[in-house]
Design a protein around this nucleic acid. Structure first.
Lengths: 210, 210
DNA sequence: GTCTATACATCGATAGAC
DNA sequence: GTCTATCGATGTATAGAC
């Protein structure tokens, strides 16, 4: 067994702790935000001592940045399934509708994704670099891929593809913020299908099919 | 002088303190968020003792709710100048463009408005009632007034006015979040005029003028 | 009503045993 | 490397003088 090798065993043990700390810290930061998360909570959630947390990450701010960089660059960098090339060769109505449905489905059901957005926006004043990391690794790639798609379909006849992308993404994001994150579902109800249909209609209105 | 009346003088003094506390607490909560704002900071910012803060508002959570209710129901309830009736009788392109310009101008230059939105979204998980108050007193009135306008102009021929309103507001809000609040101005630049022009174009594309 | 002073818990961070 | 124990600072909240 490789575990009999003391060096490998030690290294592995430390890496396991590091991952446990990241996981625990992620859970706590997403639940409580930065200021309301104590290092004791992190240590308890990770199943290690507080001193171990500090020996691995230095201080609270470094730990927070490590957690958020991880989330920004890995967990939530999916670009919402837009990376699939084959989907870009279908009818605009179908593609737009599929994109929008996918985005809304992801954002609606995934609670941790909502917590993630809450942190990004809520802490963007005190952690501007975190906000910029989100822009660079999440928002910008999404915008660029969608823009690329719009431009690759001249039949859409969009006067300003870049701006049109913002209209589409803004519509989606605002819907999730209002209905889900701000708990407006029962106060200002709106079926997502109506939004998707309207959006698709507005963008593809000039096409011959309509 | 009315100040010679001890009763009125006392009452006034207390009210002055209450207002000073609210003002100081508002400043601190908007700057630091809920958890990172201490009652010492509030007391110092208001120019009173900590005990006075507690005697007026009970505890930190009650003070926070009082501050945010004030912001939601007074300071940021403006409905972005949509209440003026005369503006609703002009050409849709002009009105839409004016609305969008006003909304973006308000949101872009007003730093405290951005801080306010950061708190609403950032604390919406731990203060759901605050989020619902925002929906009821800020978002819902805006949506309803804009919907009313859309419906009062059948010439717009909108298949779904309610959904179209969400498209418009979402576009505006997302733009401010990305460019201003998340500091994306230099990373994913976009002139607001292009957004407004595109939005107006998409919504009024069917009109005879175009 | 308002203050100073303080109680008591928890915070971030570290020392020292193992 | 990881733990327990603890430091000093700071947090919320209150008691008691005026």
């Amino acid at each position: 067994m490789t575990n009999s090798d003391p060096q490998i065993s030690e290294r592995t043990k430390s890496e396991v702790k590091t991952e446990a700390i990241l996981k625990g810290a992620m859970k706590e930061f997403l639940k409580n935000g930065y200021a309301a998360t104590s290092m004791d909570k992190v240590a308890k959630s990770a199943g290690v001592s507080k001193a171990t947390v500090y020996s691995h990450f230095g201080d609270k701010e470094k730990l927070f940045n490590a957690v958020m960089q991880d989330l920004v660059k890995d967990k939530f960098q999916t670009v919402m399934g837009l990376e699939k090339p084959q989907s870009l060769e279908q009818d605009p109505q179908v593609v737009l509708s599929a994109m929008a449905t996918k985005m809304l489905a992801d954002a609606e059901c995934d609670r941790s994704r909502q917590d993630f957005m809450r942190i990004i926006i809520g802490e963007s004043g005190r952690f501007p670099e975190l906000a910029k990391a989100y822009i660079n690794h999440v928002a910008k790639p999404s915008i660029e891929i969608l823009t690329k798609y719009f431009k690759s379909h001249p039949a859409l006849e969009l006067a300003d593809p870049e701006a049109t992308v913002r209209v589409m993404m803004g519509t989606m994001v605002y819907f999730v913020i209002l209905q889900e994150m701000l708990h407006g579902k029962d106060i200002v109800p709106l079926e997502s299908e109506r939004l998707i249909k309207t959006l698709t209609y507005l963008i593809t209105i000039e096409l011959p099919q309509l």
